[in-house]
């Protein structure tokens, strides 16, 4: 009797603990698959990010660093280069985004139609996206070079420039160089995302609108645009952040020059982290940039909510 009941109790506890162990393993399984990715991201992105924020309160010199509190942030207030870089960042971002978006939208609308050779055309116009950024930068820098590039000569032939000189060498026009390269490189991204969104619009909608008597422009503004709006909102927001922090092209083409005329906050951070010994100041500027971008995102999301409520 006793042996039987103890046996039963044992069996019950065995199956109970077995069940618990199985449940634990089952709960851990998804995390096991995720762990390599999470560990990588944590150690290479998140930890450095925290370190970076920590650095922004320190001052570094050759062999040592010291805590300076908000000293680095104070220094930013008196930094004329940073002021100029902020203004440049605005121009660089707004200019690139404007042309990338509208030309990308135009391209997506073209590719959404059927015409002979559409597949080949699509392959060609998306090609710049695959070109490594440093090559895009170099290629355009060369095109603006009056010795081997045709652009200065064409510009002066058109009467846009008095002499066939390099626009990258002139502080007044230098920013256009990286912007044009960026537009060339960025059109495919917008075209691809918008094309995917366009393809998801049911054709019945256009047909219904046509039957209702809408002309092509009305079809575009009443059917296409409202459908694209969510995609546009999210891509423009993410793209703004991406462009604002994108330093490769400018670094390759002008290194921020001449006379700081193409220096953006991102290139400034890069160059000061890289070339000057004081990682503290570079980190403080990086924190400022992050704060500005978060502010931008928050404002944009708020505005969208407001907009959506009105509509």
């Amino acid at each position: 009797m006793t042996s039987l009941s103890s046996q039963m109790a044992e069996a019950a506890s065995r199956s109970g603990s077995g069940g618990r162990r199985r449940a634990l393993l089952a709960a851990l399984e998804p995390w096991a698959y995720l762990s390599p990715a999470l560990v990588l991201i944590a150690t290479v992105l998140l930890v450095p990010l925290l370190f970076g924020i920590g650095y922004s309160f320190r001052k570094f010199s050759a062999f040592r660093s010291e805590f300076v509190g908000l000293g680095q942030y104070e220094a930013m207030l008196h930094d004329p280069i940073l002021g100029q870089a902020l203004v440049n960042t605005l121009w660089w971002t707004a200019g690139s985004l404007f042309f990338q978006f509208f030309l990308g939208l135009g391209l997506a609308l073209l590719l959404d139609r059927d015409f002979v050779g559409r597949r080949l055309v699509q392959a060609i116009v998306f090609l710049p996206w695959a070109v490594p950024t440093f090559l895009s930068g170099l290629t355009w820098a060369w095109l603006f070079n009056p010795i081997i590039g045709p652009l200065p000569h064409w510009l002066s032939a058109l009467g846009l420039k008095a002499e066939p000189t390099n626009i990258l060498a002139d502080p007044a026009t230098a920013m256009w160089g990286p912007i044009i390269a960026n537009v060339w490189f960025g059109i495919p991204f917008f075209a691809i995302t918008l094309l995917a969104a366009l393809k998801s619009i049911p054709s019945e909608l256009y047909e219904a609108a046509a039957i209702d008597g809408a002309n092509p422009w009305q079809r575009f503004t009443r059917v296409t645009l409202p459908f694209l709006a969510p995609t546009i909102a999210i891509t423009v927001m993410l793209r703004t952040i991406w462009i604002a922090t994108f330093a490769d092209l400018i670094y390759v083409m002008t290194e921020g020059g001449p006379a700081g005329s193409t220096n953006t906050v991102a290139t400034y951070i890069y160059v000061s982290a890289f070339k000057s010994l004081d990682k503290g100041y570079a980190s403080a500027v990086a924190v400022l940039l992050l704060a500005l971008l978060i502010l931008y995102a928050v404002v944009l999301i708020r505005m969208r909510r407001l907009f959506a409520r009105d509509a």
């Binding site: 992105l45 370190f51 922090t245 890289f274 990682k279 990086a286 924190v287």
Partner: peptide
């Protein structure tokens, strides 16, 4: 989030680390 935050943020610390 890691998709959107600017990589320039980690340039100074990564250089040192």
């Amino acid at each position: 989030l890691t998709q959107t935050f600017p990589l320039v943020m980690v340039i100074p610390p990564i250089y040192r680390l």
